[in-house]
């Protein structure tokens, strides 16, 4: 028996909206410690990693490890049927070929339940080594979303250059060039608005804006986003999911031809 109840059900809705355009299907691995997901997009350029700790749920039970293959656009459609303030419970029996979703209104006057078919999936799992990154930048997620959107007007790629003074995003194309420089915040009164750069070594990397714009769909999940970068390894774009865990996107850099 698997059952996970989340009073702040809107987190599920936001999470699905964050990944449904990047991934078509994925396996939700459920165990006694929580729910995890790891999947690459169809072109193998990016990877999504989700971790939700059992402690973060209001009720959590998982008697036997369960791998649920889920068609994400379908789950997203069903999650859209939940109200923003609804409590969401996900349930499955052992060896089930369906998953149940129960949406309860806060006042308990409306209860909806949906059942969705699971799918058989064979996916490759990537071993991601624990890495010390050369630069880790924390910034408001809305600022990151805005920068990716604005620079997409100029080109397909962004060059992210990080030094201890701050981080610079640049794009160029037929119409010209654009540079957006963010300096490290002088004071950190408002933690959510701060730009914080933690640098061991300066880096300058090139990434496809198309993917960063997909990642930025996770903006409603968290006020801050964390970018971790090292030369010649994938960028990590991390959004915290409240007390539950995290949503991480990995993006392979563009490399010199």
């Amino acid at each position: 028996m698997f059952e996970a109840r989340l009073v702040q059900g809107s987190l599920w809705k936001k999470l699905l909206e964050s990944i449904k355009d990047l991934l078509n299907e994925a396996i939700f691995d459920c165990s006694s410690t929580g729910i995890t997901l790891q999947a690459m997009d169809s072109s193998h350029v990016s990877l999504v990693s989700i971790s939700m700790n059992s402690d973060g749920f209001d009720t959590y039970r998982c008697d036997r490890n369960l791998s649920m293959g889920i068609h994400l656009p379908s789950l997203s459609k069903i999650m859209k049927c939940a109200g923003n303030d609804d409590i969401i419970t996900m349930k499955a029996t052992d060896d089930a070929d369906t998953v149940s979703l129960v949406f309860e209104s806060q006042n308990n006057e409306k209860v909806s339940d949906y059942e969705m078919k699971l799918i058989d999936l064979d996916t490759e799992h990537l071993g991601i080594p624990e890495t010390e990154y050369s630069c880790v930048v924390k910034m408001p997620s809305s600022e990151f979303q805005r920068i990716c959107r604005d620079l997409s007007q100029l080109g397909d790629s962004v060059v992210i250059a990080c030094t201890k003074e701050g981080v610079k995003f640049s794009a160029s194309g037929e119409l010209g060039t654009g540079n957006i420089k963010l300096c490290q915040s002088a004071s950190t009164d408002k933690e959510e608005e701060a730009v914080v750069v933690d640098m061991n070594e300066a880096v300058c990397l090139t990434f496809a804006l198309r993917y960063l714009n997909f990642f930025a769909k996770a903006t409603p999940l968290s006020a801050q986003v964390q970018l971790s970068m090292s030369k010649d390894v994938p960028l990590v774009v991390e959004y915290k999911i409240s007390e539950l865990g995290f949503l991480r996107f990995y993006l392979a850099p563009k490399i010199e031809d």
Binding site: M40, L126, T206, A208, P234, E256
Partner: peptide, 14 residues
């Protein structure tokens, strides 16, 4: 020019 890298060339399949 630049070429898009792929995730599986950085991390190994386990």
């Amino acid at each position: 020019g630049t070429m898009q890298g792929r995730m599986d060339s950085f991390f190994s399949i386990v």
